[in-house]
Simulated scan of single mutants.
Amino acid sequence: MRALLCAGAATLAALAAPATAGVVGDGQLAALSARLFPLLDAAGRDPAALERLATAPGMQAILRGRRARRAACGTDLTCRAQALLWNDQEAGAVRSAAAATTLTDADDGPAAQADREIAGINVIVRTYALGAPPATAIDGPGTLSPQDRQARLQAADWLADAPRAGSAQSFDPSIDYALALLDVSDRTDAIGHEPLSGGANAAAMARTKTLDWRRYRYGAMIVTGVGPEIDGERLSPFGKYHLRLAAQRFAQGDIAFIIVSGGRAHPRATPFTEADEMRKALIERYRIPADAIVSEPYARHTTTNLRNASRLLARMHAPADVETIIICNPLQSSYIESARFTERNAAELGYQPGRVVRRVSPTELVFRPARAADRVDPRDPLDP
C-alpha cells in the first residue's frame, strides 16, 4: 500500500488510480465497511472523493505524521495499534475535510458523521486491540489468552496493509485495521442479517408497497426485547409476556405491522437472535401472518430497540405522521417514559430516537420516530 508521504501529482495519481490487477475485493469487509463507516467507505469507492479528503488543507501533514508515528513503533503491535488512534487535532482535520463533501445523507451533515466514524475507529481499536472494557459485558472480544490476543493483533496489523479493492486504506490504514479487528474477533454482528428487506422480512416488505397505511390507526407496534440470561434459553420470561401482549393487541385489527426488536446479545455469545425467536413464536403460537411481522435483529439495548425500529419504519416508507405504539411490560414501559431514559438516549445516542406522545395503558405507549434515528454510529460497532 502506498503511503501518503508527500503532496503533489504523484500522490494524487496514486489515489485516483483504479484498483490494479491482483487487488481483490473482500465481500464481508466491504459490507462491514459500508455499514459502519458510510462516509469513509463512500470515499474509498470514489477516487476523486478520496483525493479531496486527502488533499484538504493541512491533511497531508497529518497523514504523514500518523504514518511516521506507526512506523516508529517497528514490530511492537500494541504501539502500532495506539498509533492508529485519532487525536483531537487529527479528527478535527477529517471533520473539516468531510464538511466540504456530500458523502453522506445524515440529517446532521457530513462533518458530524465524520466525527462519529473517527470516534468509532477509536472505540474499536481501544476495545479490540488495547484491552479497554467494552460498553457492556455482552460486547467486546471476550476473554483471550495472551497468545490469542497477539495473533489477532498481528493479523489485524497485516490486514490493514493488505490491499483491498474499494477501501480507504490509501487515506489511512486505521479504517481497515478497525474492520480487521472485528473480523478476526468474529464480531461482524453488524452485518449478520443483511439485507433486512429480504429473508424473514421479504413478505412484510412486499406488503408495504401496496398497503393503504391510512386504513390503520397505528402503522406499527414495536415489541421491545428483554434478552434471556440463561444459556440455551430462546426467549426470556418477560419476552414471552411481551408476545402475549402483542398478539392480544394485534387482534384488535387496527395495527398494520408488528416490529419485533432484539439482537443476538443475551447471554454473551448466544446462538439465538431474539427478534427471530419472537417472530417464530408469533407465527407458531399465535398464528400471526408472516407478512404482518417485521424482524429487527440488531438491537442490544432498549435505546436501540426504538432507534432501530424507527429506522425500519423509514425503510418501510411509513408516512411520517402515522403513529406507532410500543408494547412491553409495565416496568420497561414506565422506564421508556421516564426522564432517566431520555437522559440515557442523550448520553448513549446523542439524541432522542423519537418521542412518547401519550400513554394508553400500563403496557402501551404511543410513539413518534425521529429522523435523527438514521444516524450511523460505529461507536457501537455491533449495532451502529
Rank of each mutant, 00 (worst) to 15 (best):
187 R>W: 07
137 A>E: 11
180 A>W: 11
142 G>W: 02
195 P>M: 00
194 E>F: 09
194 E>T: 02
152 R>I: 05
177 Y>D: 07
183 D>T: 12
162 A>L: 14
154 Q>H: 15
138 I>H: 03
192 G>E: 09
137 A>T: 12
168 A>C: 13
154 Q>R: 14
173 P>H: 04
203 A>W: 12
190 A>Q: 09
149 R>E: 13
167 S>D: 08
159 L>S: 06
181 L>Q: 07
183 D>H: 15
193 H>Y: 09
203 A>L: 12
169 Q>F: 07
141 P>K: 06
164 R>S: 03
136 T>S: 01
175 I>R: 00
145 S>H: 03
140 G>V: 09
140 G>W: 11
199 G>N: 07
141 P>I: 06
145 S>R: 03
175 I>A: 01
190 A>H: 06
173 P>F: 14
176 D>N: 10
133 P>E: 00
154 Q>A: 13
176 D>K: 00
192 G>Q: 00
184 V>Y: 14
151 A>C: 03
160 A>T: 09
165 A>G: 06
191 I>Y: 05
149 R>T: 11
197 S>T: 15
149 R>Y: 08
200 A>S: 12
169 Q>M: 14
148 D>Q: 15
193 H>E: 03
206 A>E: 15
169 Q>P: 10
194 E>V: 08
158 W>T: 14
138 I>A: 02
150 Q>W: 13
142 G>K: 02
204 A>R: 10
179 L>F: 01
143 T>P: 00
156 A>K: 05
189 D>V: 05
184 V>G: 07
135 A>L: 10
159 L>K: 05
185 S>Q: 04
137 A>W: 13
141 P>C: 05
188 T>C: 11
161 D>N: 07
180 A>D: 11
157 D>P: 10
161 D>K: 05
145 S>D: 07
207 R>C: 03
201 N>E: 08
178 A>T: 06
170 S>Q: 12
157 D>R: 03
199 G>C: 01
137 A>L: 11
200 A>K: 11
177 Y>F: 12
196 L>F: 09
190 A>P: 10
148 D>G: 00
182 L>F: 07
174 S>K: 04
183 D>A: 13
182 L>A: 05
182 L>M: 10
149 R>V: 13
194 E>H: 07
181 L>T: 05
139 D>S: 09
168 A>F: 08
143 T>W: 01
172 D>L: 14
200 A>R: 13
